[in-house]
Nucleic acid binder design. Structure first.
Length: 677
DNA sequence: AGTAGAGGCGTTTTT
DNA sequence: CGCCTCTACT
């Protein structure tokens, strides 16, 4: 196999034999290339593709990996390699093995909204949280699951006045999920580890299967993921971990950057390879990146270098406010496209939080700049889409109570809250399933509003018919089955009449059509049931499914993305906006103290290192906070940059952030005094 | 049972 | 400022 295009460090990593290896890969140092080449190398050495497992964190990364493996080995061979996200791997393991825990393998994966509803009911049941504190409680639950601990042991739970009975809430929530035959996102990782803990024989079967494991973005692993990996990898520990501690930006999700720093402790005899040569960015960008990250302590010291020219200096531009900033960036893009003949897809605008996207979108639209947005709100956040999806879920899992509840009265069937709570009561009393109770109540006079009975019967009948067809039909009938169901339900009429504005109604229905269209792409050569199962799974797992992404082909577009979702990508020209204290670093992170600030700094570093040729940083003076505007100091990170690394000609000197903070505090105190009088 | 209006809440990042 | 929820009304 030809490895001559790799640098010596890359080649060493690729050629590594058996045993654990850690690849410390700086930004832009060709880590994806190392992983894909190693997969090809292993195959060339006689390892069966089925025995290789490549794990990533995001669906985007998994897709790219698959694509690139397809370039280095024949297509049909590439297909046999196991590639996917941690969560997709979890689903696969659970579909096969969840029986060991007493779940039905047709379990449902809860999305964010479902989860909230379950937790809401739990809090109500325990007579806790009269207000809507369920997301805070859920955050604690999620943290506990990710840390493989009980919530009672989390300091957050102990000191959180909203959650005096953390353990009880946690237990009831989990019990509730089991009743629903449902799992949440964290369970996709947690439950497999539980199965492997209880059944070493099952675990060993997978060890046998996944002889070589490669993990991308290892710095983002949290304790469950670590544990799952150590279960999956047995002697001689053929695990390749690739990552960069400087790009650890998922601490909020339980990631422990320490995992990568201490990989060698965990796997004695680890080979360590460091990739520091950057193949992406010009010198000016790298110098800035190095300067930014150097302020963080507790890191593997490293310094990116490159053979490229220094390029243009990185510019800092100041605007009046967020809107002026958005317009300014849009203008700069338009001008660059016009004067330099660049295509729109050469540009990316990156920001800290999704809220910042609004004014950018507005400005780009106004100046007719085509754009696409990564992440952000998904097509699947819309009510009518969720309703349709709930029907599809119901086909796969008739025990899916949440979906049944969601759609039992949409389209309206005359089943109101009164009826619903009566049925609920009965289900709880008799300890039976909601769906079964509903089904039986149909034959019982008075249990359900007479007007509603026929309609609910019709609902069950339609579901049954579709289910029967689904079980026997081939994959390419799936879309037709779904369409027949939707037609029978009169869903279109319901969706359209729920919206007064006819234009919006049309758009809403179009979304549903689009969802049904996508079913066709899942036809493949398998049963309709399997195809639908796959579809629903991918839809719940891939939150980056935006409506627009589909027509991404064709016209080149500017990319809008959060710094988080930009990780792993690169663009010739990058704008990092909102470099203001409270925005980046985010004010919530500031409350978390120095570790919070350090993570924000890494986030800044990730943003900077996305740029290949040209980088512009922007900040603004005035921030709008719920209507009123106030002065907003520049990001403290800008103050750490040595003079000379930034072109400041469009950024008037400002009072230091320290002084500005002091002024703000003084104004605040003065106002307080006025109010007190 | 379904709808319209008025409060109340809250706003990081993602699989 | 905008979204969602609860409540009172038809």
């Amino acid at each position: 196999m030809d490895l001559s295009t790799l640098n010596p460090q890359q080649a060493r990593a690729v050629r590594h034999g058996e045993g654990p290896i850690l690849v410390l890969a700086g930004a832009g140092s060709g880590k994806t290339r190392v992983i894909t080449t190693r997969i090809a190398y292993l195959i060339s050495r006689g390892v069966a593709p089925e025995n290789i497992l490549g794990v990533t964190f995001t669906n985007k990364a998994a897709a790219e990996m698959r694509e690139r493996v397809g370039h280095v080995v024949p297509r049909d061979v590439a297909k046999r390699v196991n590639l996917g996200t941690f969560h997709a791997l979890g689903v696969r393991l659970l579909r096969a093995e969840i029986g060991h825990l007493g779940f039905d393998p047709r379990f449902t994966i809860l999305d964010e909204a479902d989860k909230r509803r379950v937790m809401r009911d739990v809090l109500k049941e325990l007579r806790l949280g009269a207000d809507r504190s369920e997301q805070r409680v859920l955050a604690i639950v999620s943290k506990a699951k990710n840390a493989r601990t009980s919530p009672a042991r989390l300091p957050e739970a102990k000191y959180n006045p909203e959650m005096p009975r953390a353990q009880k809430v946690f237990d009831l929530y989990n019990r509730q999920l089991r009743n629903l035959n449902a799992v949440d996102f964290d369970d996709l990782l947690l439950l497999p580890t539980r199965i492997f803990d209880e059944r070493p024989d099952v675990r060993d079967a997978y060890r046998e299967r996944f002889r070589y494991v490669l993990v991308d973005e290892y710095q983002d692993t949290n304790p469950i993921q670590m544990h799952l990996l150590s279960q999956l990898v047995g002697p001689p520990y053929n695990l390749m971990a690739v990552g960069d501690d400087d790009q650890s930006i998922y601490g909020f999700r339980g990631a422990v950057a320490d995992n990568i720093l201490r990989f060698g402790d965990h796997y004695p005899g680890t080979t360590v390879v460091a990739l520091e040569q950057n193949y992406r960015s010009v010198g000016a960008v790298l110098d800035l990146a190095n300067a930014v990250i150097a302020k963080n302590t507790a890191r593997h010291p490293k310094r990116l270098w490159s053979q490229y020219d220094s390029g243009e200096p990185v510019r800092l531009v100041e605007y009046d406010d967020e809107h002026a900033e958005a317009e300014g960036i849009a203008e700069l893009i338009v001008r660059t496209v016009r004067d330099e003949g660049r295509a729109y897809d050469a540009f990316a605008i990156l920001y800290r939080s999704n809220g910042q996207a609004a004014s950018l979108e507005e400005a780009l639209r106004q100046q007719s700049v085509p754009y696409r947005m990564l992440g952000g709100q998904s097509l699947f956040d819309r009510k009518e889409i969720k309703d349709t999806l709930a029907y599809l879920r119901l086909l796969l899992n008739s025990r899916d109570e949440l979906s049944l509840r969601r759609v039992i009265n949409f389209p309206p069937r005359g089943v109101g809250v009164m009826t619903l709570s009566r049925l609920d009561e009965r289900a709880k009393e008799q300890g039976r399933r909601f769906g079964d109770v509903v089904f039986e109540a149909l034959d019982e006079p008075g249990a359900i509003e007479p007007k509603a009975v026929d309609k609910v019967r019709e609902l069950f009948r339609l579901l049954d018919t579709a289910r029967t067809r689904l079980r026997t039909a081939p994959g390419h009938d799936l879309s037709e089955i779904a369409r027949d169901l939707v037609k029978g339900l009169r869903l279109e009429e319901a969706v359209r009449s729920a919206e007064k504005n006819p234009n919006i109604a049309r758009i809403r229905w179009q979304g549903v059509e689009e969802l049904l269209d996508r079913l066709d792409t899942f036809a493949a050569s398998r049963s309709a049931w399997a195809a639908l199962d796959d579809y629903v799974q991918i839809v719940t797992l891939d939150t980056s499914n935006t409506g627009r992404e589909r027509d991404e082909e064709g016209e080149p577009r500017v990319t809008l993305a959060t710094m988080h979702s930009s990780k792993g990508l690169e663009f010739p020209i990058v704008y990092l906006c909102g470099l203001n204290d409270g925005v980046l670093p985010h004010e919530n992170a500031l409350d978390e103290g120095s570790s919070g600030v350090a993570e924000e700094r890494r986030l800044f570093y990730v943003g900077v290192t996305r740029a290949r040729e040209r980088l512009t940083l922007t900040r603004y003076r005035l921030r709008e906070v719920r209507g009123s505007r106030e002065r907003c100091p520049q990001s403290r990170f800008l103050e750490d940059i040595p003079p000379g690394l930034l072109d400041l000609s469009d950024a008037p000197a400002v009072a230091s952030a320290e002084e500005q903070r002091a002024t703000n505090a003084m104004n605040f105190a003065r106002m307080r005094a006025l109010l007190d009088d």
